[in-house]
């Protein structure tokens, strides 16, 4: 464990600007967003989390994968797109979002499949997180067993101790940095403070919100009567999925004029009606019922089965921003109460 005076830390961070681009939470009209930082004072009082999740840095809302040109009488020219290669520091990531990066890694940089664009961005990025001291009313990371002081997914986690930060590393890259000045080993006093904070957060951690029922047979979970009810108020917009740090579905479309074009990958959402629309006109998820069920089960059943972790980090963005107040926490609670339905 290490520590650093806050002023020294920001001086050090500023010193990184030469070689690296830095994204930090900046307050805009609409809320905090990760935006380029060029060294001026950061306004972080009132910062709980960014409006948009951190996935944008590795898996942007849209990107061109290739460009092509077709000239008469010549073979088609295809140009690959290179994602930005300038090393990046992401500062101010919250522990829930840091965890979401680990989850996305399993999808885009796992043993089965490696996405070149994602990987290049990911490997070029150094994540410095800020532990949470005051969670928002929509936060529920602790209900999913994630600590607001967790370092998983961060290269360095900073914990606010008043005039200094306690610094913990979760990677070798992070550890190497912390071993050097201006970081110094944590004093016993700082460590005590950290332990006290941990104690508080452990006390606050409630029982897991993920209901037992979801580890049961899919054939039973799939037909629970609650799916027939909960979807009705959903507008089938993409707010929850686009603001979700772990949602990672995308679409690929060609944008062409007569002689040239580009192939674009853009976020897609299982909440949209045309997400599963077939060319034939058939839609296997014809109504909101199937779509809501997909979103809930993907996060809490299919993803755990495929990647051994729940694909929700409790950041609460979907809860806070849903236009009709669809609250995933309520759904989980109701699923928890469905045990009786199952035995029927």
């Amino acid at each position: 464990m290490y520590e650093i005076l806050k002023d020294d830390f920001f001086l050090w961070l500023k010193g990184q600007l030469g070689q690296k681009e830095i994204l930090a939470p900046r307050l805009k009209e609409e809320g905090y967003l990760f935006l380029p930082w060029d060294g001026e004072e950061l306004e972080l009082t009132g910062y709980t989390n960014t409006l948009k999740p951190v996935k944008d840095a590795f898996f942007p809302q849209w990107e061109a994968l290739i460009r092509y040109r077709m000239d008469k009488g010549k073979p088609v020219q295809v140009m690959g797109e290179n994602p930005a290669t300038k090393p990046l520091i992401l500062f101010g990531v919250r522990p829930c979002d840091a965890r979401s990066i680990l989850l996305l890694d399993r999808v885009f940089n796992g043993p089965k499949y490696k996405d070149q664009h994602y990987r290049e961005r990911r490997e070029n990025t150094f994540v410095i997180s800020l532990a949470c001291s005051e969670p928002a009313s929509t936060c529920f990371c602790q209900d999913l067993g994630i600590s607001p002081l967790a370092k998983e997914g961060s290269d360095i986690l900073l914990v606010d101790l008043g005039d200094k930060f306690l610094a913990l590393a979760d990677t070798l890259k992070g550890e190497e940095i912390l071993q050097e000045r201006p970081f110094s080993p944590a004093t016993p006093g700082s460590m005590d403070k950290f332990q006290a904070l941990q104690g508080v957060s452990r006390q606050a951690a409630a029982a897991s919100l993920v209901p037992e029922i979801l580890s049961g047979e899919l054939s039973q979970v799939f037909v629970l009567p609650l799916w027939d009810e909960i979807y009705r108020k959903c507008l089938n917009c993409g707010v929850c999925t686009y603001l979700c740090p772990t949602c990672h579905c995308f679409d690929i479309s060609d944008e062409t004029t007569d002689t040239e074009g580009r192939r674009v990958r853009s976020w897609d959402s299982c909440m949209f009606g045309n997400f599963t629309q077939h060319g034939s006109g058939h839609n296997p998820r014809p109504t909101g019922k199937e779509r809501i069920r997909q979103r809930v089960l993907h996060k809490f059943k299919y993803f755990p089965e495929n990647y051994l972790a729940v694909a929700c980090v409790g950041c609460g963005r979907c809860v806070a921003k849903c236009p009709v107040n669809f609250d995933i926490r309520e759904v989980l609670k109701r699923l928890g109460g469905c045990q009786d339905d199952m035995s029927m």
Binding site: C237, G238, S269, P323
Partner: peptide, 19 residues
């Protein structure tokens, strides 16, 4: 600022086009 989530369109009772 728009993230094209189409919440505006889907919340609108006048936006009922099938496609």
């Amino acid at each position: 600022k728009c993230i094209r989530c189409y919440a505006c369109r889907n919340a609108c009772p006048a936006c009922y086009c099938r496609e």
